[in-house]
Amino acid sequence: MKTPSASILAPVGIIASAVLLSACGSMDKSPRFNPASVPESIRVPAGNQVAWETTGRGEITYECRDKANAPGQMEWFFVGPKADLMDRSGKKVGTYYGPPATWEALDGSKVTATQLAVAPSGEGNLPYQLVKANPAMGSGAMTGVTYIQRVALKGGVAPAMACTAGNKGQRQIVNYQADYIFWK
C-alpha cells in the first residue's frame, strides 16, 4: 500500500485547520446568564456589565432561636452560608461565607454587600437576590464589582423540622446551589 505524500497531506491539514478555526470563531461567546430572565425587582441598573459568572455550591446553617419581638415563639434563624464559587468550567475561583456575606476570589480580593431586593424563586429555594457591592478589599477579580445577583437557585431554605423550645439552640445545615453574577 502506498502512503500519501507530504505534499498532498499539507493542503488537507491547512483546510482542516481553517474549518476548525472558523467553527470556533463562530461559537457563541455570550455569557450563559440572560439578564432579562430574572424578575424586574432584581435587575441591575443600566450601565453595568456582567463581569463574572459563578456557581456557588455549599451549605447554609440555621439555628432554632426565640423569634425576635414575638415572646414565646421560635423560628429557624439564618446563621450564615459557606460555599465554593466555581466558574462555568467547574474550576474553583473563590468562596462565599458570612456573616457578613462575603464573596472572596482566590486572588484574595473580596467584597461585602448591602441587600437591595429579593424576589421569589420557587418553593423550597432561597429567593432571588440583588445586592450592591461595597468597595473591594484587596485588588483582583472583585475590584470594581458594583452589584451581585443570586439566581438559578436550588434549595437552601430553613429546615422543615419544627423549631420548638425542645430543640432551641440546635443547628441544622441545609445544602444549596445558586449562581452568583458579578457586575462592574
Rank of each mutant, 00 (worst) to 15 (best):
T146M: 02
D66A: 13
K132Y: 05
K154E: 11
P127Y: 05
Q172R: 10
T54M: 00
G25E: 01
A136V: 02
A119G: 13
S139C: 03
D87Q: 08
P100D: 12
L126T: 15
A46G: 13
S7G: 09
F182P: 06
A46T: 12
P35I: 09
D107P: 09
A117M: 00
A36P: 09
F182Y: 10
P120C: 05
D66F: 03
L21T: 01
V174P: 08
Y176D: 10
M27D: 03
V19L: 13
T61M: 06
P39M: 02
K184Q: 11
N125H: 07
P159M: 01
S30L: 02
P120F: 01
A165G: 14
A162P: 07
V44D: 06
W76C: 04
S22Q: 07
R150W: 08
M27A: 11
G90R: 06
A113I: 03
Y62K: 04
G155T: 11
G156Q: 02
D84P: 01
P31F: 04
F182V: 00
M161A: 15
R171K: 15
A158P: 14
M137E: 15
V174M: 07
V38Q: 03
S89M: 04
R88M: 12
Q149V: 05
A165Y: 02
T164L: 01
A18M: 08
P127R: 11
P120H: 06
P35M: 07
K67R: 15
M161G: 14
R88F: 01
G90P: 08
T54A: 04
R171S: 14
A165K: 15
T95P: 07
R88C: 02
G140W: 00
L20N: 00
K82I: 09
Q177L: 06
L21I: 08
I60L: 13
V118L: 04
M142N: 07
Y128G: 10
S5R: 12
E63L: 04
G156F: 03
G72W: 04
P100Q: 12
R65Q: 13
K132A: 12
Y180P: 09
G98S: 14
V131H: 02
T114W: 01
P45L: 11
A18V: 10
G169P: 10
V93T: 06
G56Q: 01
V118D: 13
A158F: 08
T112G: 10
L130E: 06
A117D: 05
G58L: 05
I15M: 12
